[in-house]
Structure formats: structure tokens, C-alpha cells
């Protein structure tokens, strides 16, 4: 086990290194240059070159790469070209917003998906099963921004139940509200993107749980339990569901990481100031350091989540040994 963990850690480090190198290279071969965004009509050529120099863009690529790696090891992602702020502080600030939204969403859709999945696997072949599978599939394959716009249109624009986007109501926050009011306001803004997320995601857990449950039901110990004359409910909840959860645990860890990355579309629709929107905006502005940093952080989160899932899996399933 110890050897396995060390092996995995080495593997994670190598993967991470390769990914950040690829990202670095990608930006340097770009047919574009970040300083082109800061050019204003009142700028002379000399001034333009000064700006390029400030960004370190006049150095040879090899030198830039070494500087980049050196800074990376020290945890310094550089400063954003656009705002001049340290990239790390921007990412942390945005990441927190994203995690707040997506983790809540993943947990909720996970619970809903598992609950329905368990129930319909038991009712294999029934109309209810078909209905839920098709419903789950439909939402799973629905185009995210479109669903988001529809929800905004119905619930925020027509019914006016929820705000039109954003994370807080500035009018409330500028007068120093109490903590309770702040939480209420955040919650109010959270609901609509959250619902969109859950509706889009529960389908995948539902299918996973159903399939896993069906596979488990074919196992010998279920047949044994049946033969012993145990109650259906006991078999369902104690024996089948518990074992069927195994692959779902892995899926859970992985989907937390992917939901952070996949937040791009939802955040764009709901004006949520998260990491996904930051990547889109920074890419459009050719803000290399920020995109590089965001990618590095997301990749790290994905790698660690996969790692955690593997470890968790080996603890949960005694059949697996490393």
C-alpha cells in the first residue's frame, strides 16, 4: 500500500509537470500577444516595446520557460497582465466561489441520483424505471446554457422569484448587513444556478447507481440473502445498495473535480464570479499568467481528487489490494 501511494504521488507530480509545460508552450506559440490589448492610440512604438518588456515577452522562450518553472516551484504564478494582481490571489478568490456553488450542487445531485437510482433498479422493467432513465438522460444531455437561460427566463424574468444572476445584491451589502442577512442573500442568488446544476447532473448519478445496483443484484451473496428469506427491504438497503455504492464513490470524487472545471457555462449564464468565467475572460484577453495559473490549480484539484478516490476505493472494497 505504502509503495503504491508513493508511486501514485510520483505519477501525479510528473503528470502535473507535463500539463503545465504543455500549457506554457501553448501560450507561447499563440499567434497573438497580450500586449496587443493594452495598445491605445496614444501609445508610441517605444511605449509598446516597454510594455512587452514588462511582461517578459522579449526574452527567448527557453529563458521564459525556466523562469516560469522556477516561479512555479515557489508557488508564484506571476501577476495578471490585465490587473497586475498576483494570480494566486485572483484564483483563490474565484475558486472559492466556484467550489461554493459546484460542491453544493454535486452533493445534492448525488443524493437525489442515488435515491432514485436505487429505487428504480429495484423496479427493473417497470414504466417508472423507463420514465426516470429517460428523464435523467434527457437532462443529462440538455445543452447547459440553454437550460440556464430557460430557467432565468421563467423564474427570474417572468415570475421574478430569483435574482437575474450574480452572487450578491450590492444594495444590501453596502449598508453592512448582519451575517444572517448576508447568508440569506447569498442563498437567494445560489438557488437558480444550483437547480440548473442539479437538474443537469442528477441523471448521470441516477444511471450509474442503477447500473451498479443491477450488477450487484446478480452477485451470489444477494442470491444467498434471498435464499435465506431476508426481507426485500433489508436486501435492498443493507446488501445491495451498500456494495453498489462502490463505483459511485469514485465517480463522486472525480465529478467534484470536473464540476469545478465544467462550471464555465453555468457561471457565464448566471454571472457567477467563478473560475470558469475567469478562464474564458482571461483567454479572450490573452492573460497568460492567469490562465496558466487557473489551469495548474484545476489540474491539481483533478489529480488529487482522483488520487483520493483511488485510496477511498481500496479502503471500501476489501477485494482490491495494491
Amino acid at each position: 500500500m505504502g509503495k503504491y501511494i508513493i508511486g501514485r504521488i510520483v505519477q501525479i507530480i510528473i503528470t502535473f509537470f507535463i500539463v503545465i509545460s504543455i500549457i506554457f508552450l501553448m501560450f507561447r506559440v499563440m499567434p497573438s500577444d497580450p500586449s496587443s490589448f493594452l495598445l491605445t492610440p496614444s501609445m508610441t512604438a517605444e511605449a509598446k516595446q516597454t510594455i512587452r518588456k514588462q511582461f517578459g515577452l522579449d526574452e527567448p522562450i527557453a529563458v521564459q520557460y525556466v523562469i516560469y518553472l522556477k516561479n512555479f516551484i515557489h508557488g508564484d504564478f506571476g501577476n495578471s497582465f490585465y490587473s497586475g494582481r498576483p494570480v494566486m490571489s485572483i484564483i483563490m478568490e474565484k475558486m472559492l466561489n466556484t467550489i461554493f456553488l459546484s460542491t453544493t450542487a454535486v452533493i445534492l445531485s448525488y443524493l437525489i441520483g442515488i435515491f432514485i437510482g436505487k429505487a428504480i433498479a429495484w423496479k427493473r422493467g417497470s414504466k417508472a424505471e423507463k420514465f426516470f432513465v429517460i428523464l435523467g438522460l434527457w437532462f443529462y444531455t440538455t445543452f447547459t446554457p440553454w437550460l440556464g437561460i430557460m430557467f432565468l427566463w421563467i423564474f427570474a424574468f417572468k415570475l421574478k422569484w430569483f435574482p437575474l444572476g450574480g452572487m450578491i445584491t450590492p444594495e444590501k451589502w453596502i449598508f453592512d448587513p448582519s451575517l444572517f442577512e448576508k447568508i440569506c442573500d447569498l442563498g437567494h442568488h445560489l438557488i437558480l444556478p444550483l437547480i440548473t446544476y442539479v437538474v443537469l447532473w442528477f441523471g448521470s448519478y441516477l444511471l450509474l447507481m442503477r447500473n451498479s445496483m443491477l450488477e450487484t443484484l446478480k452477485e451470489d451473496y444477494i442470491l444467498t440473502a434471498r435464499a435465506k428469506g431476508l426481507k426485500e427491504k433489508v436486501i435492498k438497503n443493507r446488501h445491495a445498495a451498500r456494495n453498489a455504492m462502490l463505483p459511485i464513490v469514485t465517480a463522486f470524487a472525480i465529478s467534484i473535480s470536473f464540476s469545478i472545471a465544467g462550471a464555465v457555462l453555468i457561471e457565464t449564464i448566471f454571472s457567477w464570479p467563478g473560475i470558469g468565467r475567469t478562464i474564458v475572460e482571461a483567454t479572450l484577453r490573452q492573460d497568460y499568467p492567469l490562465v496558466q495559473g487557473a489551469f495548474a490549480v484545476i489540474t491539481m484539484v483533478v489529480l488529487l481528487a482522483n488520487f483520493a478516490a483511488d485510496i477511498a476505493y481500496s479502503y471500501l472494497d476489501p477485494r482490491i489490494t495494491y
Partner: peptide, 12 residues
């Protein structure tokens, strides 16, 4: 083209 790429192409 994307703005940055266009600027680079025409200005530079």
C-alpha cells in the same frame, strides 16, 4: 479572428 491574433497580424 480573435482580437489579439488580428492585432498581431495587422499591426506587427
Amino acid at each position: 479572428m480573435e482580437k489579439g491574433a488580428l492585432v498581431k497580424k495587422i499591426f506587427w
